[in-house]
Design a protein around this nucleic acid. Structure first.
Length: 421
DNA sequence: TCTGGGGTCCTAGGACCC
DNA sequence: TCTGGGGTCCTAGGACCC
């Protein structure tokens, strides 16, 4: 017998935004634990950000689902408590969680703000992975005040599926010899990477459970789902060879920001300002990551929820706020048909290290001068905050001079957290 | 005052080249 | 004078995730 020494853990915060908010409020001296009553984290309806981002277990009992409008949620439960998101708090809570997890293994992959994978070798400590998982679960509660689910297995897909079993505050195993008993009876839509469209197609083929998917001829699946068919078939059989990567950061493919504007945009000049504020944050993020982009994309969503995207490769790679904005406006002008706009997005990709920025001789654009300006603005914002300096065109516009990334809803802000979390 | 924001990967079709 | 084949690049859009 060969004993397994390498395990994969998947750690997932239960109702992350809500749990973190609840834990924080307890620390601040609130009596009520939001996790014990129907409560949601959601944006404000007035600024048209009113959807449920996270819900408590009691809220779930009222059939409130993530992503639905706050209004619909109130209809289901009039006593519902709704609190604003606090992304600064979430980043801190996430960092505190990862710091503890890294005590057990150097191979930790942050999969999202509230999830990570751990490659754990029990030769290192002589302790079994299941015991480690139980200890991590307990420490999250004791030291940070929130609960997690942990899945333990031998690869990422099984660990992830395992962490999704009964919640909250549980450790589950899903080893290969447990697949048939624990995973195959589940509805096919529960499988990672089977979303609503794929689920509908599979049901059309008479496939209703993960087990049925696992035992379907992969040729049939690929005929209907192309390469996605191979993927979900492998996942249904618990097959996944992807490694736990130490870092996601080095392999970022693109970055973008988008915003639902507080009012319907009908004037080009307002769209121009919104895209400028998005370019400010995208540009800052590029410069912070020391990369330049070779592709710019703009997306528009109308008040009718129609719309699309428009993108263009650019002849230079750039991290210039002003240049990105200039391209974005070209794209906008080519695409906009005058419809009322609800949401605008700006995204850059084709990222290259900015060590070798090419300066185009053809462009009538002074990259050197803009670079100096961007650097100065970044320094001031780094020191005094992103609202310390902004372009005069935003004065009296009713628009944010910088849009995207970590920011809160503005109305009901929490103070910066100072406690242990 | 219905419907957020940030990502990744895949596919299809047209342009263009040899 | 309807007509091949292979390849890459570019753009649009769909599907999935948290």
């Amino acid at each position: 017998m060969i004993s397994i020494t390498n395990y994969i853990l998947h750690i997932d915060v239960n109702s992350a935004y809500l749990s973190w908010t609840a834990a924080y409020r307890l620390q601040q001296g609130y009596e009520l634990d939001l996790r014990t009553v129907p409560a949601v984290v959601g944006g404000s309806e007035k600024s048209r950000h009113g959807i449920v981002l996270a819900k408590s277990m009691p809220a779930k009992k009222f059939n409130i689902i993530t992503g639905e409008s706050i209004r619909d949620a109130y209809q289901k439960c009039p006593k519902l408590i709704c609190v604003a998101p606090n992304y600064d708090l979430y980043m801190k809570a996430s960092a505190a969680m990862v710091e503890i997890i890294r005590e057990y293994s150097p191979k930790v992959q942050r999969f999202s703000i509230d999830e990570c994978f751990v490659d754990y070798n029990d030769l290192a400590t002589g302790r079994h992975a299941i015991d480690i998982a139980k200890e991590i679960r307990k420490r999250m509660w004791d030291e940070l005040g929130f609960t997690v689910n942990i899945g333990v297995s031998t690869n990422k897909i099984l660990a992830k599926m395992g962490s999704d079993f009964q919640k909250p505050d549980r450790v589950h195993t899903l080893f290969p010899n447990e697949i048939q008993a624990k995973m195959w009876p589940l509805p096919v839509g529960d499988l990672f990477m089977v979303g609503s469209r794929t689920e509908a197609k599979l049901k059309g083929l008479g496939i209703n459970t993960i087990g049925e998917l696992a035992q379907t001829d992969v040729a049939l699946l690929s005929a209907h789902l192309k390469s996605h068919g191979y993927l979900v078939h492998a996942y249904a059989n618990g097959i996944d060879h992807s490694p736990v990567r130490k870092s996601n950061r080095e392999i970022v493919k693109g970055m973008g920001n988008s915003t639902t504007v507080r009012f319907n945009v009908e004037k080009r000049e307002d769209a121009n300002l919104v895209l400028l504020s998005l370019a400010e944050s995208v540009g800052m993020r590029l410069r912070q990551a020391s990369v330049c982009a070779g592709l710019v994309s703009v997306s528009i969503r109308s008040t009718e929820f129609t719309g699309g995207g428009h993108q263009r490769k650019i002849s230079v790679t750039t991290d210039s706020t002003t240049y990105i904005h200039k391209i974005a406006m070209q794209l906008f002008d080519e695409m906009w048909d005058g419809q009322l706009i609800r949401k605008l997005g700006l995204r850059v990709s084709d990222l290259y290290s900015n060590d070798y920025v090419q300066l185009s001789l053809l462009e009538e654009f002074d990259f050197e001068r803009q670079k100096a300006l961007d650097d100065t603005v970044d320094k001031i914002r780094g020191k005094y905050g992103s609202s310390a300096i902004h372009r005069a065109s935003f004065l009296h516009s009713g628009l944010r001079p910088v849009t995207g990334g970590i920011q809160d809803d503005g109305e009901d802000e929490y103070p910066i957290m100072t406690c242990i979390l």
